[in-house]
Write a protein that binds this DNA or RNA. Structure first.
Lengths: 102, 102
DNA sequence: TTTAGTAGTCATGTTTTTTTGACCTCTTGT
DNA sequence: ACAAGAGGTCAAAAAAACATGACTACTAAA
């Protein structure tokens, strides 16, 4: 008995799962769901988080097209990260996952 | 501006995400979706996989209630892992994820 | 009795991820 | 001029995840 020779065996969801499960990523995602997020605010609000990891996480979520980096050129010029379309499409998935956890 | 003081900040989906994203886990899951899986068969069929990691992955998926370990006391006695109810409920989530990857 | 298959464990080593702490740039407030 | 906040980077260390190889126990066939 052989478990189907799906030799070329890369689960399509795998990459996305990895991206979403890195340290701090789920939190970042959740914060982003209810509004734009900013670096130093996150650093203050997520206890235990550190610059480097947040920077990496944001960069990865951005490069995966889940967050958009926006430079707000106003009075004290700052940077915001918003959920993209792709990011939004993940919301129901998180909700389902939360439903399953119970 | 403070990103909502959801100080006690554990994303409910986080644990599940982590469980699903460990090495070989997505593959194990996929194999399990189309039928019971067995240790040595997996070891042969998943190229690159090693005993230790498979054992750990199976154990974790089992302890999370995603797989059930079944001892088949037949002729040459062996062990099978099947998707549980919880495991089945993850199937649509994987499908959605696959739809998003594109 | 030796070999082969199933289903692992254990100790160890390597690799990858995360964390720490120092440093940098730019802008605004005092 | 200097401090303080925003938004980082870099090198190095610590921690977590993965891989390797040796070994175990049981069963069955040669």
């Amino acid at each position: 008995m052989t478990t189907k020779n799906q030799a070329e065996n890369t689960c399509p969801a795998e990459g996305l799962l990895k991206i979403l499960s890195g340290k701090w990523k789920p939190q970042l995602f959740r914060f982003a769901v209810n509004g734009a997020i900013r670096f130093n605010t996150l650093l203050r609000d997520i206890e235990g988080a550190n610059k480097q990891s947040l920077a990496t996480a944001l960069k990865e979520l951005e490069s995966e097209g889940i967050l958009h980096k926006v430079i707000i050129s106003e009075k004290p010029l700052h940077i915001e990260y918003n959920l993209s379309e792709k990011g939004l499409s993940l919301v129901p998935i998180f909700q389902q996952l939360e439903g399953i956890v119970k």
